[in-house]
Design a protein around this nucleic acid. Structure first.
Lengths: 150, 150
DNA sequence: ACTGAGGTTAGAATCATTCCAATTCTAATT
DNA sequence: AATTAGAATTGGAATGATTCTAACCTCAGT
């Protein structure tokens, strides 16, 4: 699903902003906006700590708890995706295009890969009868070219 | 890939046993054997704690650390798979057939789903050039029929 | 029996994440 | 502009899964 255009509210008085995404109206506080902006400007699937570091340059006082809060809000609003690749920290991405994650097990890099053609994974598997699908996560683990050539 | 037949070593003196799987020769201590057996006899993708509980009935003295040890060994030997569905505990499965996991977000149940046809996920995505694939994980999250009907 | 290489253990340590209670902020209403 | 209710934010504590550590044990080969 292509990402919906993100717009501010027609009434951005004070700090109040909103985003209209996928029909949902999401309150966008300054912190949430910064967390979202950091993520939208990153292609490396940062962790919560990474995001804290990057947001701190603009909002020195922000706490890790707030970053987690913002990430939870943005995730449940459907603005970002949470990615579980391995044990340990979750990673996040703001790419809402249909895509999968290639995870290099050597350097840890995570690279988005986009489908060559329209493809519905659910259709290819015999899912349990009557199941309703909310989300699919495909991660391919391996070694990227630059690590393989070393 | 269908699971290779699992056999004991030709020389099972004392506690020494081995499994030959996918060409690798794996030393199978009694604890590893029990952990493997518990997993092979389960279809519910137990967590490390679940496995500890089940193994304890046969080996009351076994510790959680040993269960983790055994799971790590069996995983790196390719005898079992580790599954990351969400934050929190990892789950494990001994089903080595090509399959994916359907995760019900209401009851937490994890159900294996098998491909309707031979299908190579890697071929459907434009993976980074030169990448070597070692493992793919596809999880579909949703609501199972019995939870949906409530 | 002796030895070296794992295997096993309990408990401590670590790390990511969540919870909590207090404080601050926002937006709508007086 | 003051009031107020509901959210957002905070630091720190708590939780929970996993990993680490150091000591002990067992096996297989000498």
């Amino acid at each position: 699903m292509p990402p919906t255009a993100i717009r501010s509210s027609s009434k951005p008085t004070g700090l109040e902003c909103r985003m209209a995404v996928l029909g949902a109206d999401v309150r966008l506080t300054p912190h949430r906006r910064e967390v979202y902006d950091v993520l939208a400007g990153s292609t490396d699937h940062p962790t919560a700590y990474d995001i804290l570091d990057r947001v701190k340059s603009r909002s020195p006082g922000i706490s890790l708890a707030t970053v987690y809060n913002c990430l939870d809000h943005l995730t449940s609003a459907g603005l970002i995706k949470q990615v579980h690749l391995a044990r340990g920290q979750s990673r996040y991405c703001a790419n809402l295009h249909e895509h999968i994650h290639f995870h290099c097990e050597v350097c840890g890099k995570v690279i988005d890969a986009h489908p060559a053609a329209d493809f519905d994974p659910a259709a290819f598997w015999n899912l349990p009868k009557g199941a309703r699908i909310t989300r699919t996560d495909l991660a391919i683990h391996g070694v990227c070219e630059s690590c393989a050539s070393k």
